[in-house]
Amino acid sequence: MSFLLSVARLGKFTFQNIFRNFWLSFITSTIFVLTLVTINAVLFMNVAAKAVLEAVEQKVEITFSFLPETSESIVTSAQGYLRGFSQVRDVQFIPSDEVLANFQDRHQADEVILSSLDELGENPFGHSLVVTTYSTEDFEFIREAMETPEFSQYIKEQDFTDYQLVIEKIKSLNTRTRYFGFGLAALFSLIAIMIIFNTIRVAIYVHRDEIAIMKLVGANDWFIRGPFVLEALLYSFLSTLVMVAIVFAVFGALQIQMTLFFGDAWQGTVDYFRDNAFIIFGLQFATLALLSLLTTAFAMRKYLKT
């Protein structure tokens, strides 16, 4: 009972601290929220970039077009040969008729090309193999593997869609964004530390009479320091709550536009945040609370001689 009563009184003094310096408390919490939102924006960019990269990489493929006279058995043999590599995700055999149909589909608006095909009178395309790998970095290996004389003599051309450039650009952008984001987060963290230090310092100054009287009448040390510690913890907790609300509000507001832009990658990123919410936001709260407590301890040590 006595313990609960003391905790309740600590809570009362803590709320007095907060509301007597309302604007200072508001600014402190705002800086905390800004810091957390920045960190989450960086985290979001990182996760989204990974999801986009994965999506792009899954779409990247090499097409080996064989000479028209190459028999199906040679092409299927090459298919088996390629499937033997651990780097290969899939090898799809496209018969020449389908290659022709796909070509016609792609150029159905181009009368010149279609009439040229008609003039030829026969299918100018051979069979094709469409190879997808687990990583774009394995493309070079696949190209070299197909340079074996057993198959290279039958290959008319290889179409390596130039996604590598796109991937490199995404990676580069992501790295730069991450550095910038972490820099910004570090800056906000530094500001947050200074703000909480000043908030506690001002709170100690505002309550100097009460503190003096508390000491005079025999209040325990923890009773004097407790409200400031609780105040710092409360700022961290409230800021985390506001940040979580902002993050999910942004997710909700941008759902349609972002799904159109990022496709499945967007939903994957939202799901990542939702599934790991407890760990992501819990860790951020714990870090912020620890930072606040250390700063508060330092401020109390400097300004609160008990």
Partner: peptide, 24 residues
């Protein structure tokens, strides 16, 4: 005197007991 101006007479006196953890 060292009294708290925002507290009443009763509250100023009870403050000494509150911070010592006395029951209401």
């Amino acid at each position: 005197f060292k009294l708290l101006s925002r507290k009443t007479v009763f509250e100023n006196v009870s403050f000494a007991l509150e911070v010592a953890g006395e029951e209401r």
